[in-house]
Amino acid sequence: MPATPPTPPTPPTRCPCLSGETYAACCGPLHAGTATAATAEQLMRSRYSAFAVGDAAYLRATWHPSTRPADLDLDPEVRWSRLDVLATSGGGPFDRAGTVEFRAHHRHPTGSLHEVSRFTREGGRWLYVDGVTG
């Protein structure tokens, strides 16, 4: 089945990551490839937004090659509605690794995902390595 093209919000729509910025000023440039995440938290937020807008290509591009799945099919039925960043460790502009704990809520089906994600910075780019859910 061919991948459904992402449907990014149009300005001035609020960014799905709930940073308080518009999509065009926040995660949009990262998804478009015109900017890169400066921190592990920014990458995590942009990955959440990619799930929210259905951008599987961005998710694959920001996934570390050692743990990246061969295929990534997003469930179009899941409607992501809120992101709560609970804690961060490392992951700053000069760090090589970091973790971000978050809870991502979805409306259909109703529920949430709680994860502590690990990130690494290689070649000046932050990449998602893996996460522990619970």
Rank of each mutant, 00 (worst) to 15 (best):
G124E: 02
E101L: 09
V100C: 02
V85H: 10
H114T: 14
G92H: 09
G98L: 03
T120Q: 10
G123P: 02
S117F: 03
R96N: 10
P109L: 00
F119D: 04
D95T: 05
V116E: 13
R121M: 02
T120H: 07
E122M: 05
G111L: 04
P93M: 05
R125I: 03
G123V: 06
H114V: 08
L113A: 05
S112F: 15
R118M: 00
R125N: 11
G111I: 07
G92D: 12
R121D: 05
L86K: 14
R103I: 00
A87M: 10
T99A: 02
S112C: 06
A97P: 08
F94C: 06
G90K: 12
R121H: 06
G90M: 05
H105W: 14
L86E: 14
H106P: 01
A97H: 14
E101D: 13
L83Y: 12
A97W: 07
L83P: 11
L86V: 14
G92Q: 09
G92M: 03
H106L: 00
A87C: 06
A104L: 07
F102T: 05
E101I: 00
A87G: 04
V85Q: 11
A104E: 13
F94Y: 10
L83H: 12
G98R: 11
D84I: 05
G92F: 03
G91V: 01
P109Y: 04
F119R: 04
S112Y: 15
R107D: 15
